[in-house]
């Protein structure tokens, strides 16, 4: 139990540090966001609004840095991330609207990729030297194809030429989002191609990693002992070999979960999928600082959360890590 407590405290401190950096970055950027915005709007913003904007960014010159910092935290803890310039609505609302799409699509795709890849890697590693090894170069080939390019190829084959799947969007625009089977079906239908792109490009990493670990672990003494004990093939493979081989996979999985939120920018742009990555891109090109900051906050928190999960899962799965701090 002390292990989990210690890790929890560690993550609290990390979160504080990340948020503090998030606070300082806009303040050390050359120029200030308000003048950048003024320049972009060419004087169409009233002087009153300038003051309001400055207050919004915490750029109020009357406040000391410390005051700004405490205000920042109080706003943050109240879930107030400011207003987006371009969309003229609270950043929180935009994030709340787009986050489920990204997590749903990329999260599910990543989990499928990890599960299938790890299982395939287990099987290939267990039967190394057989014909199953041919899967390796094939999957490696697909993973080395650039992400956006594969996405375009997939669109051109399955959407433009065959017409099986839509080329963009996340659901049929004629429908109203609700929890009916029809709508969910449409979401799955629209999500197939983007998910396929993610799975194809990422699965070989899982296969290769797991296969290599299986080969390494299979020659370990305890696997031989398990064989000598006369345990069933299944039990040796899952209880002894892959049970140990999966440990390093887990850390990579946690990292990739963290990148779900930020790393799908390209995919969401190609498929015009209205997730976080899409908003991050538009926010960056429009210098929409509050939205950018909000996106970064979400990414940071996602990486932290994923790491917490992996850490705790590791603690549960590998008794050796529970020992030292």
């Amino acid at each position: 139990m002390r292990f989990f407590l210690r890790r929890g405290i560690f993550y609290l401190i990390t979160f504080w540090a990340a948020m503090t950096i998030n606070f300082f970055i806009p303040r050390i950027m050359p120029g200030d966001p308000v003048s950048a915005m003024l320049a972009r709007n060419q004087g169409k913003i009233s002087p009153d609004a300038i003051e309001a904007l400055k207050a919004l960014f915490g750029l109020d010159e009357n406040m000391s840095l410390w005051q700004q910092y405490t205000t920042y935290w109080s706003l943050l803890l109240h879930g107030n991330l400011g207003m987006s310039f371009t969309n003229r609505e609270p950043v929180v609302d935009i994030l709340a609207r787009s986050l489920p799409w990204t997590i749903g699509l990329v999260g599910i795709a990543t989990i499928i990729s990890f599960t299938v890849g790890t299982l395939a890697g287990t099987a290939i590693g267990w039967r190394r030297g057989t014909r199953a090894d041919i899967l390796l170069p094939i999957s490696t080939f697909f993973s080395s194809v650039p992400y956006f390019w594969l996405a375009l190829i997939i669109i051109s084959i399955f959407s433009v030429n065959l017409g099986w799947f839509p080329s963009n969007g996340s659901y049929d625009r004629s429908m109203v989002p609700n929890w009916s089977w029809e709508f969910v079906g449409s979401v799955i239908y629209y999500g197939t191609l983007p998910a396929l792109t993610i799975i194809i490009t990422s699965i070989s990493g899982w296969i290769l990693g797991m296969r290599n670990m299986m080969v390494t672990v299979s020659s370990d003494d305890y696997v031989t002992v398990a064989q000598a004990k006369g345990l069933s093939e299944r039990k040796v493979m899952f209880g002894y070999a892959s049970r140990n081989a999966i440990l390093p996979q887990l850390s990579s999985f946690a990292l990739s979960l963290g990148f779900i939120v930020g790393g799908t920018l390209v995919m969401e742009t190609v498929f015009s999928y209205q997730g976080i990555g899409y908003h991050l891109l538009t926010a960056t090109s429009n210098k929409d600082y509050p939205l950018m900051q909000g996106c970064f906050l979400v990414i940071t928190v996602a990486v932290l959360l994923a790491n917490i999960c992996a850490d705790f899962a590791y603690g549960v799965l590998d008794p050796r890590t529970r020992q030292e701090g």
Partner: peptide, 12 residues
Amino acid sequence: FQGAMNSLNPVH
């Protein structure tokens, strides 16, 4: 076996 250190599965 020879390696007493590695003959036991570390996670069970």
